[in-house]
Every structure is written in C-alpha cells, then in structure tokens.
Design a binder for these strands. Structure first.
Lengths: 187, 187
DNA sequence: CCTACCGATCGGTAGG
DNA sequence: CCTACCGATCGGTAGG
C-alpha cells in the first residue's frame, strides 16, 4: 500500500466518524504518523481526498451494476441482482460508503455537480429495471420514483449498522433485503 | 417569535444545509442580523442550539407516537398510524429533521448518550408493534430488527427529497408509504 | 519528510 | 446589542 492509499484509508475512517468539516489535517496526519505539512507531498488539498473517496466509490457502484444491468433475465431477478451487488459494495466499503452518502455535499464545483449527475444516472438505472418489471407484468403498478427512493434509503442505511464480523454475510443480507423489498412489489 | 426562537430556526436551516461543524457563529449571526457576540445573550453556546434542536424534535416524535401506540386496534392499523404520524413530524419539520438525523453525533456527553438512548427507546416501540402483529398472525414471521431498520431508513430519508409545496401532502405520502411498506409484510 | 511559519477564522468573553 | 479582543486552531506554503 502506497502512502497515498494509506492516507485515503485513514481519512475515510475519520471523515466517516467525525465528518469531513470537523476532521483537521493535523489529526489526519497524526493518525497516519507524519507531520501535517508532509501530507501535501502526497495530496494537493483536503478536498482532493474527499473527491477521491466519493468518485472512487461511485466508480465501484457503476462497475458492479454493469455486471447485471444488461442480463437477459426477468425484471425481478435483475432487480434482485442489482440489490445484491449494491449491498455488496456498501458492506465491503463501509467507511467509504459513509463518506459517499453524507459528506459529498462538501465537494466544490464543478465536482459537486458531477457527483449529483452520476448519482442521478445510477438511480435511473434502478428505475428502469422497476419500470421494465411493471411492463412485464411482474411488478404491481407503483410510483416508481417513490419506490426507488425507499429502496435506496433502505440499502444505503446499511452502512450505519452493518457489522462486518456479525452473523450476517453480505450475501445473506442481500437475500433478505431482496425478499423484504420485493414481496411488496411482486404481483 | 422570540429572538431565541429565531436563532434556533435560522440555525436549523444552516446546520442542515452546511452541517453543524461547518457553520460558524459569525455566519449564523449575520443570517439573524446581529453581531456574533450578541448571540451569546440568548444562548450559552453553539452546542446548546444543537441540543435544543435534537431533543426538541425527539420530544415531537414521542408525543406523536403516544397518540397512537396504546390504541386497541389490530397491529397493521397501528403500524400504519405510527408510520403516518412519524412522517407527519418529518414533513412538517424538514430542517430540524435533517439536523436530528445527521448532526446528532456532534453532541457532547452526556447528551450524546441520552440521545442514543431515546432513539433506541423510540425504535423499540415500532419493533413492539411489528412483533404484536406477528403474534396476531397479521404479519409474516420476519426479522423484526432488520424490517424496522429498513422502515426507519425509508421514512427518515424523506427529509432529503420532500418538497412541502409539491404534489404530495404529508397524509398522501404517509398513505403510500404504509401501503408500500406493509404489503410486503401482511399475510 | 521535517521545521517554521503564513493569514484567516474559529467559539467565546469582557465590559459597557 | 455592540466594540474590541482573547487564545486556539484551521488549511496550506516555503525552504530545505
């Protein structure tokens, strides 16, 4: 692991726990084990770290979704797969997920707009799958936007309480979630 | 409206939008229309404002829940009512809800522990209703904790996107949510 | 990677 | 409710 990767990993944890604004570069440096000024040999600014975390995880989400979104399967199966890979990304990147979900608003322009656009594109992929299911007659006619909003909030909240060493593996969790969230939708 | 109430209201909005840590007392004072030092004639500290917001809304949530939790009705009706009043509190206090849900972690001890305890007690009331329904045979046997976690996340996320002047009234929203979230649960 | 340091800003107080 | 000010801390740079 390079020093830059180490800085990012430590920062992920601190940004998640204390928040981006309340984390100082001196605290970050101390946790890494160097002086504050030395951080700037590896990064350009505090915000650059935030950008790396947010856009890095956005990339993970898209890569994961790409593996399932064009499969030739019924919409309920596809939605289950999409839920599973989304949860997988969160549960295996808890710190980054926390930052991605709550600290993105400290991005400056134009990164802030880029971020929002990516997020919207991602959410629309899920809406497309649900719409597909309604057209196929597999899902009840539903307020697609409201449903997806609730679906995302339930999935994204996982970072708040999931324990990597608890009883639930990411796969088991994904399965339970799919059942729970789909049974209200399936005809 | 007293000056203290005005300060709280302006602070709710700024804390929600910029975050507690990133909001300075000077910005707050300017938004109120006085000098920073003058704030301290009405409040003891920056954190006192946060405490008032967090515990004030906690009180609203409990008051709302009290009006429905002991009704002699089937569990599905009771859960629907609980969902409705919870959503009502959020949609009519959007700024305070945002602070309550994301900025509570900046509370210092012992307020932080008090806050967590209150939140746990509140969540357990919902779990009790779901358990009641399972015992009554109205709800499917379910992972109660996981279900309530998802229920709360979906309801609480509302503050992120709800527009008070949009098409959906709080009551309509509550109704749609209940249907959506209960239909996966009801036998 | 460090020492030394910059100007800016922080929450809050004294005194009127 | 204001002016004037406190010590502490902020993100970041110069120079080696």
């Amino acid at each position: 692991m390079t020093r830059k990767e180490q800085i990012r990993q430590v920062a992920q944890n601190m940004f998640r726990e204390k928040g981006y604004a309340a984390t100082s570069m001196r605290e970050l440096a101390e946790a890494v084990g160097i002086e504050a000024a030395s951080l700037y040999n590896h990064i350009k600014s505090k915000e650059e770290i935030l950008q790396d975390i947010c856009f890095g995880l956005a990339n993970d989400f898209f890569s994961a979704l790409d593996t399932v979104k064009d499969a030739e399967v019924p919409a309920d199966v596809k939605l289950t797969q999409a839920i599973n890979v989304h949860i997988k990304v969160i549960t295996t990147n808890l710190d980054a997920a926390g930052v991605f979900l709550t600290e993105w608003r400290f991005l400056s322009e134009p990164h802030l707009s880029n971020f929002k656009n990516m997020r919207n594109r991602y959410e629309r992929e899920f809406q497309r799958i649900v719409l597909e299911g309604i057209r196929q007659g597999i899902f009840k006619p539903t307020d697609v936007k409201l449903y997806c909003l609730s679906l995302f909030s339930a999935m994204n909240w996982i970072y708040q309480w999931y324990k990597p060493n608890g009883e639930l593996s990411p796969n088991e969790l994904g399965e339970r979630f799919s059942l729970m969230l789909l049974d209200g939708l399936r005809v």
